[in-house]
Design a binder for these strands. Structure first.
Lengths: 188, 188
DNA sequence: TCGCTTTATTTTACAAGTGAAACACTTGCT
DNA sequence: AGCAAGTGTTTCACTTGTAAAATAAAGCGA
């Protein structure tokens, strides 16, 4: 289901006691249009999508001063947590991006001196990618900053609720991983 | 934080008793690299992003046979649940898209006879958008189909877990809506 | 009334992603 | 050894989104 925003005007107060997120408003609208539709998926999926959008927006904003996109940072992170060099194909699979996109991004990261490429001695088709010292330093500096910011965003939820959320999301993710056909690229 | 995929090879079995989602694997990797980092945000945000990506991918796939993109369907839905015609600007705000993107999408929907445009009599700058009969019929047919598919995807979780997830996500979303500056476009 | 500011929407220029094609290399079989 | 099939990566042609500029219309104050 889609995600939308509450009306700009004075349509905010829903329940007189509590504020409501935009998905609640959207569900209310749909109940008027289709009173007999089961809207539970909107309550879950709509909120997942909306939270994702906002969280990604926040991550983008934090990376911007360093001239890094989230996708590029994703590549840096993937290389940083890997115990060995990765091929372009592995990076594409790990980051759910197309080969073409990865090629372009790696090019940019190479130009910025953050990533290094070597052709595999045994198979000349294969590129082996590693972080440069600068790339590693950047990743090591940026990740904790991102995590701090994200921790602050999550602190709006009590710890038990956060744990619960992680648990339920983990269950859902596991199920989705088994249910949704592996599409070529599904970064998010 | 970013989202990635488990290694392709035989790295799958984590805990001997239970399968694990990919975010679990990523967290394990980071623990080896940075043992003292608080990875809680990855557990929540990484999973939100990954679930969102998979769910969006599934939604895209379902809309494809009707030559509809998710963003276009979002516009149709927004018009369908609205009690009155909406302006292009309102649609942009409701769908968290830029005015330029909305203009392009509306053009396509108009060409397909799904959306109708009238210039406002009182303010000639303003476009008033409504669904055509065909547009409404399509929305009314497609939404339940999407919801059914989504309901099936969520059925991997027990009902109480779904309710809990919706609740926690709602809390988080409400908090994020209040914390993250309103960026121009943050569709998801 | 007039001129300046603001507003609604579209157009423009460009970046970034995609699927498919291209290219080079490797593997496997006869 | 030679060739067809398969594989890894990049290039290509195109689509789609963005920010900013452009255009037309409205609002406001002197």
């Amino acid at each position: 289901m889609s995600e939308q925003r509450p009306r700009e005007g004075g349509e905010r107060p829903e329940a007189p006691e509590a504020r409501a997120d935009i998905v609640t408003g959207i569900m209310r609208q749909w109940r008027q249009v289709h009173p007999d539709l089961d809207l539970e998926p909107i309550g879950v999926i709509g909120r997942i999508n909306r939270c994702a959008a906002l969280l990604q927006q926040a991550a983008d904003a934090q990376l911007r001063p360093q001239q890094l996109t989230r996708a590029e940072f994703d590549l840096l992170g993937t290389l940083r947590r890997s115990a060995r060099p990765l091929t372009a194909g592995e990076l594409a699979r790990e980051t759910f991006a197309s080969g073409a996109a990865v090629t372009k991004r790696l090019r940019r990261l190479e130009e910025h001196g953050l990533v290094e490429r070597r052709t595999d001695a045994r198979d000349r088709r294969v590129a082996r990618l590693t972080l440069t010292d600068a790339g590693r330093a950047l990743a090591d500096r940026t990740l904790p900053e991102q995590l701090d910011r994200e921790h602050a965003l999550l602190s709006g939820l009590p710890p038990e609720h956060r744990a619960e959320l992680a648990e339920r999301l983990g269950e859902l993710l596991l199920h989705l991983e088994g249910s949704i056909p592996h599409a070529p690229h599904a970064a998010g």
